[in-house]
């Protein structure tokens, strides 16, 4: 049987903003259908990495392959490339840190938005799908509410329902547990695991939360000062003797990771 294409491959990816080197020679391979939790202190390039993965930012050098296709070779300004880039992006769902819900649309329309844009479904089918996903995130019957009426946790869950509405192959989550209470974080983790089990979705989760990494990760990475200090299957990383990873998991101030 042919070996399955990795979901994501990064080859020596570098990204700088002026003198600030945000990503330095980051290389990794994530097999399809796995959950990667990328850990690291604030300001170490985790969100930039996520944006590079989906083509919102272009690395200065290095290449990023999504299911074998080089997303860094596509230039958004060229119309032919733009079509390909959009086709590639349809493989993604993304949960933004603050949800990024459309303010002028109700919850139901927010979740229905990608379906209306990309699927040939009747309004009835869309309404059913929206109800199904909102129920899955524990928000039954909130379709008519506006985003401004929701709490932070609810907004995040609605955004999660929107991110998975098209049943993407890869879901990127930018700090899904930040600002949530522990119970809500655990609920979101359960949801990620359930979707992963049900649809074999590949997840890339950006987080500070080591408990989250222990609970849901198949692979763990640790970014610090733009460099990938550690990366591999969870068991291997948790057994690592590298001081960066030990300091992070021990929540210690003593070690190579300094407060920026």
């Amino acid at each position: 049987m042919a070996e399955q294409q990795p979901a994501i491959t990064l080859e020596r990816v570098c990204k700088s903003f002026g003198p600030n080197h945000v990503l330095r020679d980051v290389s990794l391979t994530l097999p399809a259908g796995k959950i990667l939790v990328m850990l690291g202190p604030s300001g170490t390039g985790k969100s930039v990495l996520l944006r590079c993965l989906v083509g919102l930012m272009k690395p200065d050098s290095g290449r990023i392959f999504i299911e074998g296709q080089d997303i860094t070779a596509l230039d958004e300004r060229r119309s032919a490339d733009r079509e390909q880039l959009f086709a590639l992006r349809r493989k993604f769902g993304m949960l933004f840190q603050d949800g990024a819900l459309f303010d002028d649309m109700c919850v139901g329309d927010n979740v229905a938005f990608p379906l209306r844009q990309h699927e040939k479904m009747s309004e009835r089918e869309i309404a059913d799908r929206v109800a199904q996903y909102l129920e899955a995130v524990g928000l039954k019957g909130v379709q008519r509410k506006m985003p401004a009426e929701l709490s932070g946790g609810m907004r995040k869950r609605v955004a999660f329902a929107r991110a998975i509405a098209l049943r993407p192959k890869i879901v990127l989550c930018d700090e899904p547990s930040s600002g949530l209470d522990p119970v809500m974080s655990a609920t979101l983790d359960e949801l990620i695991l359930e979707l992963h089990r049900k649809f074999a979705i590949t997840f890339v989760v950006i987080s500070h939360d080591t408990a989250e990494a222990r609970n849901i990760a198949d692979y763990i990475g640790l970014l610090y000062k733009g460099e990938l200090q550690e990366y591999g299957p969870k068991e291997q990383v948790l057994r690592s003797s590298r001081r960066h990873i030990n300091q992070f998991f021990d929540r210690s101030t003593d070690g190579p990771i300094k407060v920026l």
Binding site: V54, F86, D98, A100, L101
Partner: peptide, 17 residues
């Protein structure tokens, strides 16, 4: 407002121009 709250980026990720 859509730019600073990442709504425009959300559209791009959803492959909407």
């Amino acid at each position: 407002n859509m730019q600073i709250s990442e709504q425009v980026e959300a559209l791009e990720v959803m492959a909407v121009d």
